[in-house]
């Protein structure tokens, strides 16, 4: 009986406290909020432990579901993505190659526009068929107006001269071949000589006058004395000057300006000195004037 009376009293006390809390919440909202926060601080900390545990369990389950159970189509998707990546890599390489080709063509075009000579762009399609000549094969031939003895250049300098042609291709003997000879001049001292290839894959300026003061580092350019190249195209730089006692001339080894092992496009000089049409008109004008009384 005493127990039931005590329970009744406790219930009544609890109801009164709850009613007071409600009244306090409605009548004094900010103070009651502060009080609740003060009381809820430690409770929140206690609650955070099981909350974290359940949360990690939930994440674990979700990961397990997403990582193992729900992965039925991922393998195929992965293969497809790999295929896509390979395809995109290929396309990327092609675009890079196209970009470098465009840059090369742009440089070649700019150089072509600056040249006073008439030139024809050509692609390198092969190397000499034997090991005994330093030559390369171009994709332009007699049908395009290419003839033997025409000079071949790049924006960097002299490449060589055409030695053979057929209807669709031509063979160029490089400046580094011992059978090649080009008239050159040392840019600083204006000493002339003949540039020939050597067995070591370089070139040599021969017949430099004994009293010449040429030195390593001097640049050699075409002299324009032969009909193949116009004046002033770079051939290379002197790397070693040789002067033997008793010789009538000096000679010097040249490092070619053009990297002949990495050529893709070149220009063939079809009319070396100036515009052929303009030259023709000039000649006609001169002859016409002479004919006049």
């Amino acid at each position: 009986m005493a127990i039931s009376r005590s329970t009744y009293g406790t219930r009544r006390l609890a109801i009164v406290l709850f009613a007071c809390l409600l009244v306090a919440l409605f009548l004094l909202p900010s103070q009651s909020q502060r009080l609740l926060q003060y009381v809820g601080g430690p409770l929140g900390q206690v609650l955070s432990l099981p909350l974290a545990a359940f949360s990690s369990l939930d994440h674990g389950l979700a990961d397990m579901w997403n990582g193992y159970v729900a992965l039925q189509g991922v393998h195929e998707e992965n293969r497809q993505l790999h295929r896509d990546i390979e395809l995109l890599k290929g396309q990327n390489n092609q675009l890079r190659e196209s970009l470098t080709a465009v840059q090369r063509y742009e440089a070649l075009l700019n150089f072509k526009q600056q040249l006073p000579s008439q030139t024809l762009a050509a692609q390198v399609i092969g190397r000499d068929a034997t090991n005994w000549y330093r030559g390369m094969i171009l994709n332009k031939g007699e049908n395009d107006g290419v003839r033997t003895e025409m000079g071949v250049i790049t924006p960097a300098g002299v490449v060589g001269r055409v030695v053979k042609t057929n209807s669709t291709s031509s063979v160029v003997l490089l400046v580094t071949d011992p059978n090649n000879a080009i008239a050159g001049v040392v840019q600083r001292t204006r000493d002339e000589g003949i540039v020939e290839g050597t067995s070591h894959g370089r070139a040599r300026l021969k017949y430099i006058p004994l009293l010449s003061r040429v030195q390593a580092g001097d640049r050699v350019v075409t002299s324009g004395l032969t009909g193949t190249f116009p004046r002033g195209l770079a051939i290379g730089s002197l790397i070693q000057v040789e002067k033997s006692e008793g010789d009538l001339f000096q000679s010097a080894e040249i490092e070619p300006e053009v990297d002949l092992s990495k050529l893709d496009e070149v220009l063939i000089i079809t009319a070396p000195f100036e515009d052929a049409d303009a030259a023709q008109k000039l000649l006609q004008a001169i002859h016409g004037d002479r004919k006049k009384p």
């Binding site: 068929a129 034997t130 005994w132 030559g135 053979k164 057929n166």
Partner: peptide
């Protein structure tokens, strides 16, 4: 014959 056409050497040698 074909090699001579695509080489800088004389036409007889290959």
């Amino acid at each position: 014959c074909f090699q001579d056409m695509l080489s800088a050497g004389d036409l007889w040698i290959n």
